[in-house]
């Protein structure tokens, strides 16, 4: 499930900025980061590594079936 969960978010927006694929957005109401487009997560962990409070939990599984060349 790619980015699995966000825990203890302080709403700094670092993960939103850090994500190359625009997976995470800020919820305007709660002021916290929300996993908005999980299908586009490439599991690169940048959001997790940029989070100042280590809020992001990752999973190696993709949320949509993957296409490989051979495997």
């Amino acid at each position: 499930m790619t980015i699995k969960s966000i825990n203890g978010c302080i709403g700094c927006g670092e993960c939103v900025q850090a994500c190359p694929c625009d997976v995470i957005r800020m919820d305007p109401v709660s002021g916290k980061a929300v996993i908005t487009y999980p299908a586009d997560c490439q599991i690169c962990h940048l959001c997790r590594m940029y989070s100042p409070v280590d809020a992001i939990e990752m999973s190696p599984e993709k949320s949509i079936p993957v296409i490989v060349s051979w495997g």
Partner: peptide, 10 residues
């Protein structure tokens, strides 16, 4: 970053 996120109520 954490301590300067002043728009966070928490």
């Amino acid at each position: 970053t954490m301590l300067t996120t002043f728009d966070s109520l928490g």
